[in-house]
Design a protein around this nucleic acid. Structure first.
Lengths: 348, 348
DNA sequence: ATGAAAGCGCTAACAT
DNA sequence: ATGTTAGCGCTTTCAT
């Protein structure tokens, strides 16, 4: 009922002073006598004054707000990243505007534009699909933008970035399987994750080359179409059957979701993991530890990536120099991978 | 470099008109001649003008922003809810400020206060722990607040709400087990989820009473302390062992995370699910379908709850009348529950 | 130590 | 059809 409308003007009137005195008093400006300050602060409380940060932002040219754009929030990976971002942001007194792009370049750009209009102090974009073509369009944005795991090869040079070494990650996965004696190793990827999939695929191939192991295009399965990462599980399900008949004894999966899908199909097909087939995931989401058997996987420090990206943004805002970051993934060995057994496929 | 500073004033000067003409032209006000309008819009594009929505908000007294407070974002349940909220919000052209309370009442209140200062148009709070004591404090907030699954018994009457019928959900779970022949049924809950846990516990007890089945305080295990929902899995792990020795043949779990924890411990203890023990979860998060065996669980329409809450907020903003919603959960039968076997525990 | 006045970028009522 | 003028609520010179 009581339309909250109390402004510093109202307080000023009541206190018999000018609104600028109130403004100062409320922010404890020592120019105002202590007596006056406490009186006004008291009054403000009584009148249930709530500062209007919109007005404050307009004046100060700072919103204390940052924009975060992710492709989807009901994906544990991004949830963790956002978690890390929020942790650092709230410490610094910044609020977060969350936008979801659904892996759609247009929506991503629209979201960034919206954030720009809202005059956020900075922007964090995960899995960005922005490339050179849009660079110009975005060049006019004068707030810092940081890309987390950018999915474009031609990284827009206007961005700073935090990313994972995907190639290394895939190598770790392959080398792990090799160390277990596997020689016929497959890769199960997703087509729409431009850069990270390519890099992981490259890492997979590199590791095989280095080890002098055979490669076979039949051992690589990729889906091409859809955009929803949640469907990664079904992607894994579908693609596994293709690989299952090729005689591979170990499979590196694009990520944990895909690996889980593969795992589920194996259960259905009666393929025992890890006895018949070793599976390695990527990301290290919580889920990877809950399936049976728990997934051996290449972990990304998800929260840490969020924290670091946010910290980089804070540094940028403080006009400190920053350096782009490439983080290192690490392998966690669990139950889905094991020493290759005397090979049923070698017998023919 | 080019400090983005273009304002309607700048455009006005260049176009040789007044800034109000520009303001009108940019919003396609028919009062301005078509010729002038297109000329100005053209100019605006050339000058790379971006409207300042902070200024606009101050003038219009509307930020087109809503606040969303959740206890944690790396919890699939809230991720889904937020997903639903975002879907509706973005359709309506509203942006979302996301705050995380970490299940801490003080942080929750601080978050709401912050949102209030930012003059969001409305607030959505999930798992709110606010009670009568804070009601007064919040009464001065003149924007609509909607609680999703409020965790307080004395629902602050200043809120509207969307919630699930927890009691019914638990009854569905118990009745399912009863229909499978179970007579010794336990409950595995969490102490810090005030209302929902109590209601589910009540539903559990009610169902048993109605069926005339025995109840036993040893068949109920609750943790008391911690706040992090992520630890629900470890809660489930710990508590299961307590129940495992009591001779229950079926267990209703507070939620899927707890159920997964229980499941994992069963694996370790050599208790076969569902042969030795039936397990029923609650929530219906994606994970529940990925474990082995997949969980029978009571589903909440998570996204839908987000969508409906957001829609309710939109209605409120449009000054339409709204009614609080109590949604109905539904059972999904999967592999973790089965007909009770001729009971190993009856033999003594 | 306090007040007056200008202005942040925009919209809108009131001229003309 | 366009310009003038007043704010929205606040911060900040510049006076006093």
């Amino acid at each position: 009922m009581s339309k909250q409308k109390v402004t510093i003007q109202d307080i000023a009137r009541k206190a018999g002073v000018s609104h600028s005195t109130v403004s100062r008093a409320l922010r404890d400006n020592p120019l105002i006598s202590l007596k006056m300050r406490t009186k006004i602060q008291q009054l403000a409380r009584e009148m249930k004054y709530t500062p209007n940060s919109v007005a404050r932002s307009l004046q100060n040219q700072r919103t204390h707000t940052i924009g975060v754009v992710v492709t989807s929030i009901d994906d544990p990976f991004f949830a963790e990243v956002v978690n890390g971002i929020e942790e650092q942001a709230s410490k610094a007194g910044l609020s977060i505007i969350l936008s979801i792009s659904h892996r759609d370049l247009e929506k991503e750009i629209a979201a960034i534009d919206n954030l720009h209009q809202r005059r956020v102090d900075g922007i964090l974009v995960a899995d960005s699909h922005i490339n050179r073509h849009q660079t110009k369009q975005l060049a006019r944005i004068d707030v810092p933008i940081i890309a987390i795991n950018s999915q474009t090869q031609e990284q827009a040079e206007i961005f700073n970035s935090v990313s994972i070494d995907d190639c290394l990650g895939a190598r770790l996965a392959v080398e792990h399987l090799i160390s277990l004696g596997h020689t016929r190793i497959g890769y199960l990827g997703v087509g729409d994750r431009s850069k990270s999939n390519q890099q992981r695929l490259a890492g997979y191939q590199l590791a095989l080359s280095v080890a002098g192991l055979p490669q076979n295009s039949d051992w690589i399965a990729l889906n091409n179409c859809d955009r929803t990462r949640i469907s990664d599980v079904s992607t894994g399900r579908q693609l596994l059957s293709q690989l299952a008949t090729t005689g591979v004894t170990g499979i590196v999966c694009y990520n944990d979701m895909v690996a889980v899908g593969a795992l589920l199909t194996c259960h259905e097909l009666g393929i025992s993991i890890p006895q018949d087939l070793s599976l390695v995931g990527f990301d290290g989401i919580a889920l990877s530890g809950y399936v049976t058997p728990p997934l051996t996987t290449v972990c990304q420090p998800m929260q840490e990536m969020g924290r670091l990206a946010m910290q980089m943004l804070l540094d940028l805002l403080a006009e400190k120099p920053v350096e782009n970051l490439v983080l290192l993934p690490y392998l966690v060995e669990r139950g889905s991978s094991a020493v290759v057994k005397s090979d049923r496929f070698f017998s023919f």
